[in-house]
Simulated scan of single mutants.
Amino acid sequence: MKRSNAVRFAAVAAAGVLALTACDSAAEEGGDGGGEESASALQVGLAYDVGGRGDRSFNDSAYRGLSQAAEELGVETTDFEPSDGEADSAKEQRLATMAEEGFDVVIAVGFAYAEPLQTVAAEYPDVHFAIVDSEIEGMDNVTSLVFAEEQASFLAGAAAALTTEEDHVGFIGGVETPLIHKFEAGYVAGAEHVNEDVDVEIDYLSQPPDMSGFSDPAKGRELAQAQYDRGADVIYHAAGASGNGVLEAAVTNDFTFIGVDSDQYENAEENQKPHVLTSAIKQVDVAVFELIKAASEGGVEGGIQRFDLADGGVDYTQSNEEAISPIQDELEEIKQQIIDGEIEVPTKP
């Protein structure tokens, strides 16, 4: 396989002003005059990862779960946007502000919140915290929502190898971290499971502590163009909002795109849809909703909750029926082999 040096960008210093938006909620009708239901409702705050809402991926999935909770459970919800290049101190302040203002449940989206959340959760033991994509143990008021990204990525890699016409595919990661290595490892293993001679391009947009690789569609487009120029005709990304640029490159050059986290076929523009083969999804929306539901019923527990192929926590999408149907039987067979333990999917490249 080919691995080129990661594209590096300068980190943006200092955190910006906290941005906040209120989710639509039946419990919030009438502004300050929300009535008895609003006054008694569970208050839930959610802090987005790099890229924020509108990434058509990870953050948007979390927002769907939050919105569903507002609509179906009548909880009061508020979501908070990050600032580009912000320091951990800004994340810590964001979480502490929610706890101080009386939120019952505080949800942090993304592994970058791990250290700030542990600090704040220790200071507010009566508030229940949750974090997506990071394992935190030993804190009764913290729930970790983690996923077998490598399993869904294995199916993405298999789909890529089954559809490439050049035996040459690509992977673009946002930031080179252990979490995104899981996506890479699964994707490469899945592609090589189908075709051991397949050529796999691997590139990352940025290196820690620079997290801009998750929020730079222009660089995503540029890197996808470079992989295409080197011969890749199917490209899978795990790059958050930067993946929107990868999809733009797919349309411009007429190659195949594989999305991540959310169903990016459903979120695509009409002219983009034919280029989206599938997406390796993880049900962040379901995990967020179920956590809030448990809290509303008084039954939320701390600890680690894992979601994988066997329980539907991760999967591949079939929305583009015309594209996916010719290979669906093979993907379903591979999926069952993973569930049955016949295929062991690696978590490291």
Rank of each mutant, 00 (worst) to 15 (best):
S61K: 02
F183A: 02
A130F: 04
K2L: 11
A15P: 08
F129T: 09
G138I: 15
I202L: 09
E332K: 10
Q305M: 06
A26W: 04
Y113S: 05
F111P: 00
A191E: 02
E333R: 14
I202T: 11
V7G: 07
D32E: 14
G30F: 07
P82K: 11
S206L: 05
F183V: 02
S89C: 15
D285C: 06
A161Q: 06
E137W: 09
E150V: 01
E86C: 09
Q337Y: 07
F80H: 03
V175F: 06
A108S: 08
A287R: 01
L66T: 07
A90D: 13
G174Y: 02
T21G: 15
R64T: 07
R230I: 05
D311W: 00
V105N: 01
G138D: 14
P349G: 10
G52L: 06
A19P: 03
N267L: 12
C23F: 05
D216R: 08
A161T: 05
A239K: 01
Q283Y: 00
M98W: 12
P116I: 09
G243I: 06
A22L: 12
V234N: 03
E201Q: 10
G74M: 06
E342M: 11
I202D: 03
F183K: 01
A27N: 09
I338P: 00
A238R: 01
S206P: 04
S206D: 14
G186A: 08
I172D: 01
P82G: 11
V12A: 13
A96H: 06
V251K: 06
T256L: 11
Y204K: 05
A114P: 00
N5P: 03
P326K: 12
H193L: 09
A90F: 09
L46W: 03
A130G: 12
D203K: 06
E100H: 12
A185V: 04
G35N: 11
F289C: 05
